[in-house]
């Protein structure tokens, strides 16, 4: 009956955030959410599998902390210029994960972290091309992405 329970739940919460937490809006929101998730089902997207959802708060914690840190770092690069020996450059990162949802999450994380931008992903050789604003050691960056985000995302989604 409900092909995407998480989507339905999020739509109900969104409806109630916009219209108020009352019983009437819960019923109305539930009707809208159920019909919306049926129409989503007719598009037949890949159903994301959350294997270890209890790791999600840990991921959000790490990402929030990194976003604060890189906000300050990029602000200082813009205001004071790059320190000696630092450059900006392209970075090709080979990824092991193939799950679409996990890749989408990684794209969101890397884009919303200032200082790194996701340019393109090649599903043929599973490499993502990034542009990094402030880089000292390229291997260290690749290692950071793989150990900090990719490992956790693979545990959650694959």
């Amino acid at each position: 009956m409900l092909p995407y329970p998480l989507l339905t739940l999020s739509l109900i919460i969104m409806w109630m955030l916009l219209n108020g937490f009352t019983l009437g809006h819960f019923v109305l929101g539930a009707v809208v959410a159920v019909f919306a998730s049926w129409s989503m089902a007719s598009l037949r997207p890949d159903k994301p599998k959350l294997r270890k959802w209890h790791l999600l708060p840990k991921l959000f914690g790490i990402v929030l902390y990194d976003i604060v840190r890189s906000n300050l770092a990029v602000a200082s690069v813009i205001l004071k210029g790059r320190p000696e020996g630092h450059t900006s450059g392209f970075l090709a990162v080979p990824l092991e994960m193939e799950d679409r949802t996990a890749l989408a999450f990684l794209a969101i994380i890397l884009t919303s972290t200032p200082g790194s931008a996701w340019l393109e992903y090649d599903s043929g050789d599973r490499t993502v091309l990034l542009h990094v604003l402030d880089v000292i050691d390229e291997d260290q960056w690749i290692e950071m992405i793989k150990s900090r985000y990719e490992k956790l995302l693979m545990e959650i989604f694959e």
Partner: peptide
Amino acid sequence: IGAIGFLRLPTFYERIHAPTLGTSW
């Protein structure tokens, strides 16, 4: 600061980093 960076950074690929300050924190 993001807007200033958008104006001042030299290349396109560096400039796309600046507005992410506005879209994150």
